[in-house]
Computed example of a mutant assay.
Amino acid sequence: MSVASEYLQLQRESSDDMVRRHAPLVRRIAYHLMGRLPASVDVDDLVQAGMIGLLEAARNFATDRSASFETYAGIRIRGAMLDELRKTDWTPRSVHRKLREVTEVVRQIENETGADAADAEVIRRLGITAQEYHQILADASSARLLSLTAPDDDEGGAAFDVADQDGMEPQERVEQEGMRHALIDSIGNLPEREQLVMSLYYEQELNLKEIGAVLGVTESRVCQIHGQALVRLRARMVGWREAESGNGERGTGKGRAARRSG
Score class of each variant (00 low, 15 high):
residue 1 M to S: 09
residue 2 S to D: 12
residue 4 A to P: 00
residue 4 A to V: 13
residue 6 E to R: 11
residue 7 Y to I: 01
residue 8 L to Y: 14
residue 10 L to T: 01
residue 14 S to G: 15
residue 17 D to I: 08
residue 17 D to R: 13
residue 19 V to S: 02
residue 20 R to C: 04
residue 20 R to H: 09
residue 21 R to S: 12
residue 25 L to N: 04
residue 28 R to K: 14
residue 29 I to F: 08
residue 30 A to Y: 03
residue 30 A to T: 04
residue 31 Y to R: 14
residue 33 L to W: 07
residue 33 L to P: 00
residue 36 R to P: 01
residue 42 D to H: 07
residue 43 V to N: 02
residue 45 D to K: 12
residue 45 D to F: 02
residue 48 Q to R: 15
residue 50 G to S: 08
residue 50 G to D: 06
residue 51 M to W: 01
residue 52 I to K: 14
residue 54 L to Q: 10
residue 55 L to D: 04
residue 56 E to Y: 06
residue 57 A to P: 04
residue 59 R to V: 05
residue 68 S to N: 03
residue 71 T to Q: 13
residue 71 T to P: 00
residue 71 T to G: 00
residue 72 Y to M: 06
residue 73 A to L: 07
residue 75 I to G: 04
residue 78 R to A: 13
residue 81 M to L: 07
residue 82 L to H: 08
residue 87 K to G: 04
residue 92 P to M: 06
residue 92 P to Q: 06
residue 98 K to P: 00
residue 98 K to C: 00
residue 99 L to M: 15
residue 102 V to I: 14
residue 106 V to Q: 03
residue 108 Q to K: 13
residue 110 E to L: 05
residue 110 E to Y: 09
residue 111 N to Y: 00
residue 113 T to A: 10
residue 116 D to R: 09
residue 123 I to Y: 06
residue 123 I to G: 08
residue 123 I to Q: 06
residue 124 R to A: 15
residue 125 R to S: 05
residue 125 R to Y: 04
residue 126 L to M: 15
residue 127 G to M: 09
residue 127 G to H: 07
residue 128 I to D: 08
residue 130 A to R: 15
residue 131 Q to E: 15
residue 131 Q to G: 04
residue 132 E to C: 03
residue 134 H to I: 01
residue 135 Q to I: 03
residue 136 I to A: 14
residue 138 A to R: 13
residue 140 A to D: 08
residue 140 A to W: 04
residue 141 S to A: 15
residue 148 L to G: 11
residue 149 T to P: 00
residue 154 D to T: 03
residue 157 G to T: 02
residue 158 A to T: 12
residue 160 F to M: 13
residue 161 D to W: 05
residue 173 R to E: 11
residue 177 E to T: 12
residue 178 G to V: 05
residue 182 A to S: 14
residue 186 S to T: 15
residue 187 I to Q: 09
residue 187 I to Y: 10
residue 191 P to Y: 09
residue 192 E to V: 12
residue 192 E to D: 10
residue 195 Q to W: 02
residue 196 L to T: 10
residue 196 L to I: 04
residue 197 V to H: 10
residue 199 S to V: 04
residue 200 L to C: 01
residue 200 L to N: 01
residue 203 E to G: 02
residue 207 N to Y: 01
residue 208 L to Q: 11
residue 212 G to Y: 06
residue 212 G to I: 03
residue 214 V to E: 13
residue 214 V to Q: 12
residue 216 G to E: 04
residue 220 S to V: 11
residue 222 V to N: 06
residue 224 Q to N: 12
residue 226 H to C: 09
residue 232 R to E: 09
residue 239 G to D: 14
residue 241 R to D: 12
residue 245 S to N: 05
residue 247 N to F: 07
residue 247 N to W: 05
residue 251 G to V: 02
residue 251 G to F: 09
residue 253 G to A: 10
residue 253 G to E: 03
residue 257 A to V: 10
residue 261 S to M: 11
